[in-house]
Amino acid sequence: MIRTCPSCQTKNRIPAARLSDVGRCGACKVTLPPVAEPLEVDAAEFGEIMRSSKVPVLVDFWAPWCGPCRMAGPEVARAAATVAGRALVLKVNTDQQPELAGRFGVRGIPHFVVLRGGQVVVSQAGLVRGAQLIDWLGRAGMKPKATAA
């Protein structure tokens, strides 16, 4: 996966297993925080992340023409920011990745799937709030948010 450094704009290659970790820019050495936004992935990237992820993964199956999917977008983005470093959030465009949607039995969108170690923990179609998405990730074993002492 490629992440752009917010400081110097250098593109950094981040292994899929490290997307939930804090890293460093290869050029300017500034800290790169864990991924805090939904990642749009294709089937190959999805497979790589599933094989190596150390944290639960929420997948938002969607399409650009879908009104409820567009309504879910901000909730999914807020959830991704909230769970950064403790879970990953992926977006799969069902128009571009129909075989991936079929593998998970997606018949209506938006459709959300939560996986842990490649195994489905939750699968539900329909519009849901960000708090529900976060709750599902917790049920999949997401670590609680660290509290300041």
Rank of each mutant, 00 (worst) to 15 (best):
residue 73 G to D: 04
residue 114 V to N: 04
residue 50 M to G: 00
residue 144 P to D: 12
residue 141 G to N: 11
residue 62 W to A: 02
residue 145 K to G: 03
residue 105 G to L: 08
residue 52 S to P: 04
residue 33 P to N: 02
residue 27 A to R: 15
residue 93 N to T: 08
residue 35 V to P: 08
residue 66 C to K: 08
residue 50 M to W: 01
residue 119 Q to L: 13
residue 135 D to N: 12
residue 112 F to Y: 12
residue 43 A to L: 09
residue 59 V to E: 04
residue 17 A to M: 01
residue 145 K to S: 10
residue 45 E to P: 03
residue 76 V to N: 11
residue 47 G to V: 07
residue 120 V to C: 04
residue 74 P to M: 04
residue 66 C to H: 05
residue 121 V to W: 06
residue 40 E to H: 13
residue 105 G to K: 02
residue 34 P to E: 05
residue 113 V to K: 01
residue 102 G to K: 12
residue 134 I to F: 05
residue 92 V to T: 05
residue 51 R to H: 10
residue 21 D to N: 13
residue 113 V to F: 07
residue 43 A to H: 03
residue 101 A to E: 02
residue 142 M to L: 13
residue 82 T to L: 09
residue 51 R to D: 08
residue 99 E to W: 07
residue 65 W to H: 01
residue 36 A to W: 05
residue 54 K to M: 01
residue 55 V to R: 01
residue 111 H to N: 10
residue 80 A to M: 06
residue 41 V to F: 10
residue 108 G to C: 04
residue 30 V to G: 00
residue 43 A to Q: 08
residue 62 W to Y: 14
residue 68 P to M: 03
residue 99 E to R: 15
residue 141 G to Y: 06
residue 35 V to Y: 05
residue 130 G to P: 05
residue 49 I to P: 04
residue 76 V to W: 11
residue 21 D to W: 14
residue 87 A to V: 09
residue 45 E to I: 08
residue 40 E to C: 02
residue 74 P to Q: 06
residue 146 A to Y: 04
residue 46 F to M: 03
residue 62 W to D: 00
residue 62 W to F: 12
residue 19 L to A: 06
residue 46 F to D: 01
residue 102 G to S: 11
residue 104 F to N: 01
residue 129 R to K: 14
residue 98 P to R: 00
residue 120 V to G: 03
residue 29 K to M: 06
residue 92 V to E: 02
residue 81 A to I: 07
residue 124 Q to T: 10
residue 130 G to K: 12
residue 106 V to F: 12
residue 113 V to P: 01
residue 42 D to V: 06
residue 63 A to S: 14
residue 125 A to C: 08
